[in-house]
Design a protein around this nucleic acid. Sequence first.
DNA 1: GACTTATGGTCAAGTAGCTTGACTACCTCT
DNA 2: AGAGGTAGTCAAGCTACTTGACCATAAGTC
Lengths: 157, 157
Amino acid sequence: MCQGCFNAPVQNSDAMALTAALLAAAGGLTQRIHEGVVARGFEGVRPAHGFAFARLAPDGATVTDLAVHLGVTKQAASQLVDELVGKGYVERRPHPADARARLVVLTEAGRACTQAAEEAAAEAVGSWADVLGEDGVRVLADGLLRVAPGGPIRPAW
Amino acid sequence: MCQGCFNAPVQNSDAMALTAALLAAAGGLTQRIHEGVVARGFEGVRPAHGFAFARLAPDGATVTDLAVHLGVTKQAASQLVDELVGKGYVERRPHPADARARLVVLTEAGRACTQAAEEAAAEAVGSWADVLGEDGVRVLADGLLRVAPGGPIRPAW
DNA sequence: GACTTATGGTCAAGTAGCTTGACTACCTCT
DNA sequence: AGAGGTAGTCAAGCTACTTGACCATAAGTC
């Protein structure tokens, strides 16, 4: 097992370089998506909002669901929802099955913003395909999904 | 419902999935490295410090260099250096060629911590090799370096 | 050499996004 | 019914960052 955890590890400096490259790629992509969203006319949104949208997209979610998805406390998630309500991107509805809970759903503006984010993401990733080729991007994405299946979305430092 | 009826935003959701996977991988790796560093007995350090160490490692650097490298203001970088000085990991020396500047260099403890971080990083990446194989990791790293050559290290949201 | 502008660094104050703690309303299990 | 767990919010506090002001030195111009 563990073919080379200790005996033939990847060079240390390689490991650090990989980490830096991962952060750079993730950060750069996030930034470009954000810029694309802003360029499409949605202001006052942060990248974190986009990841919230992704969780809310299909059928809405509760504040607690959001908190788990984003890796923050439910208080923080609730504040984020407050902010999005204020900007008109989401609204709180009574939960159909639990009177304690409230279902947070996207408004029409929220759906539009979500679509803008998806377009911007596709555009940014598309520019990667110019460098790596379609297959290269697929290999990259596949590898990442295998090493970080359900990892924390939120940057941890 | 006909799940093929959407007008082909499949590419879009792929792009979002890739972004999420990148963030998850970067965040997870960073977190594991940090845990490894703490496990080796270095407390009171944050992941950001590790990236500062990486910049300081060869011959030291100025506060402004650090700020650029980390993607923060020089005030923030200066505060980070204050913190590291307080913990004994770095020290400020007069700059040999510029009386305005000060050269921030690693202390012995700082070098030990840097090495611990490299070990932890190699260990974390090694566990990826168990999943992807050594070649898989190499392909991943290579691809990332090509799409994000000098991207921002700091998570931008 | 004197003058002007740019650069390295710090001090001080303010801020955004998060945390912990305390609380209410409601659900669930026995 | 009662006990304990869960969803959500309010309030206060913290931390890592920011902007703005400032000084000392360097570099360019005359």
